[in-house]
Amino acid sequence: MPLTREQVEKVSLLARLRLAPEELATMTAQLDAIVGYVEQLAELDTTAVEPMAHAVEQTNVFRPDEVRASFDRAEMLAGAPKADGQFYLVPAVLGD
């Protein structure tokens, strides 16, 4: 079933992207081609196969819980597009 423009638009919201109408058309066609290609995996019977999430399958790695110095607030906020010296600032979330 080919991907629709509406589906791709919905995914763009989930992905927190916003595509212009012409971008949306190109993206729909390209994603459709790629999804069509990756769908060949459906040919394989994988019922008895355990998924492999990682190349190195390790169990939990533990270390002692030590108190250590972390990053300096001012230094971390230095990269922020908008901050007040204490917090990151974003457009108002409530009362909209």
């Binding site: 990756v38 995996l41 459906a42 394989l44 994988t46 196969v49 998924p51 492999m52 999430a53």
Partner: peptide, 15 residues
């Protein structure tokens, strides 16, 4: 399930 989980299973077959 159809994409990500399937791909992880095929990943094991590749390994």
């Amino acid at each position: 399930d159809a994409y990500y989980l399937k791909a992880l299973k095929v990943r094991r077959l590749i390994r």
